[in-house]
Amino acid sequence: MDLTVGSNLFFWTADATRKFYADLAQAPVSRVVVGEVVCSKRLPFWEAEIPTALATLQEAGKDVAISTLGLVTLKRERNQTDDIFGMGVPVEINDITALKHLPENTPFWVGPLVNVYNEGTVAYLARRGATRICLPPELPLASIATLAKAGKEAGVKIEVWGHGRLPLAISARCYHARLNDRAKDNCQFICGEDLDGREVDTLDGQAFLSVNGVQTLSAATGCAAYHTEALREAGVDSLRLSPQTGDFNALCAGYADRIAGNISPEALVAQLLPEAPGGRFADGFFTGPSGSDWAHPIPA
């Protein structure tokens, strides 16, 4: 089992993006997906960084892919999706729309926003050329094991959400804009102020969700620290780490140590919790009863 860094879901400046990928070249991860998943309006602010990031990461020996948008509605977004296939880099699709643009005999990766719930879907996508699939975060361990087996039979590598706020929903409506009494068309890029998303609490002050433009994530950070052995045993090929602020290379190194068996889940959790957005972890999608669950000791 190795490590994959997914697309950064948040809106960071070009400078921050450049530094993030330059640093990431030194991180102990096998592959990196780069690209805008959440909102096409953000892209002009940082897309010039994409070729540099891809080149830097490739020079450092990482496999790379470029991701499509997660919810494609506008003509401009459809054209962008088409253009991505011409960039000479493997594409990770995050919306089925991309399959319409897929050139013949082109291998591709499938991101966590595509609904892959069963063997039939794995088999179909494999026939179309999928070589890697990152499963949706809501799948339980039993389903993951079945799909990892289906992946092996179909020649597809199976990846699972390992760390990061859990992507739970996407909408045509921008909640960041709505929270600021603005419409999506006049958002003034307010989502750029919340580098790990904007937290949404219950009326009791319980941390619950976070909004990131048109996307809704968990407030807690998803963390697979306690499940790496079970996932490996299930036949999972890679753990996905989702970019967040703080020392991300140290986070990658922590997971590399964890999957190598060098550190315990407790040690990894103790290392990562201080920088976890939301200040708490969740791993309930793996074993239940609900996604927000975390039934492990919390380090002092």
Partner: peptide, 13 residues
């Protein structure tokens, strides 16, 4: 309000 079929809010809670 979310894109249908692409929402795990309920299973998170």
């Amino acid at each position: 309000v979310m894109a249908e079929g692409r929402c795990a809010l309920s299973s998170y809670a």
